[in-house]
Design a protein around this nucleic acid. Structure first.
Length: 113
DNA sequence: GTATTGACTTCAT
DNA sequence: AATGAAGCCAATA
C-alpha cells in the first residue's frame, strides 16, 4: 500500500487545472510536503500506470519536462500537453504563460486538509 | 542499523 | 546558456 504522503501527492496533482502546469516542488508544497520534490516524482512513477492522473502537467521548476528530450515519455508528455493547448517547445513550457498560480480557496476546496 | 537512489531545486561557477 | 555541487528526505536495499 502507498503511504499517506504518496496519496496526498496524487490528490494534489489532480487539482492542477487543465491547460496549466506546476513544478514538482510546487506540488510538494501544496501537498503539505515542502522540500519533497523528489518524492513527488516517485509518487508519479508509482501512479503512472493504471491511474488517471494528469502527471504530464508536472514539470521541473525551470519549465523543462522531467524526461530527456526525444525520449518516448517526453514525446508522449508533449503530446498530452498540446492536447490541452499548452505549448511545448524544445522540451519546455513557458511557465510565464502556463504556470499554475493557485489561490488558497482553490486548494482548500479540493484538498480538504 | 547504515547506504544508496531519485520524473527535484537552488546556488555557484 | 550549460554544468556541477550541495541540499533535500522518503523509500529501497
Amino acid at each position: 500500500m502507498p503511504s499517506e504522503k504518496i496519496i496526498r501527492i496524487w490528490k494534489t496533482v489532480t487539482v492542477i487545472p487543465k491547460g496549466k502546469v506546476a513544478s514538482y516542488g510546487q506540488i510538494a508544497d501544496l501537498a503539505g510536503l515542502p522540500g519533497r520534490a523528489r518524492l513527488v516524482g516517485k509518487a508519479l512513477g508509482l501512479a503512472s500506470k493504471e491511474m488517471k492522473l494528469p502527471w504530464y502537467r508536472v514539470l521541473r521548476s525551470s519549465g523543462q519536462l522531467a524526461f530527456e528530450k526525444g525520449s518516448l515519455q517526453a514525446e508522449k508528455q508533449k503530446g498530452l500537453l498540446q492536447q490541452e493547448e499548452v505549448v511545448v517547445l524544445n522540451n519546455r513550457v513557458k511557465l510565464k504563460d502556463f504556470g499554475w498560480q493557485p489561490d488558497l480557496a482553490e486548494i482548500l476546496s479540493k484538498l480538504k486538509y
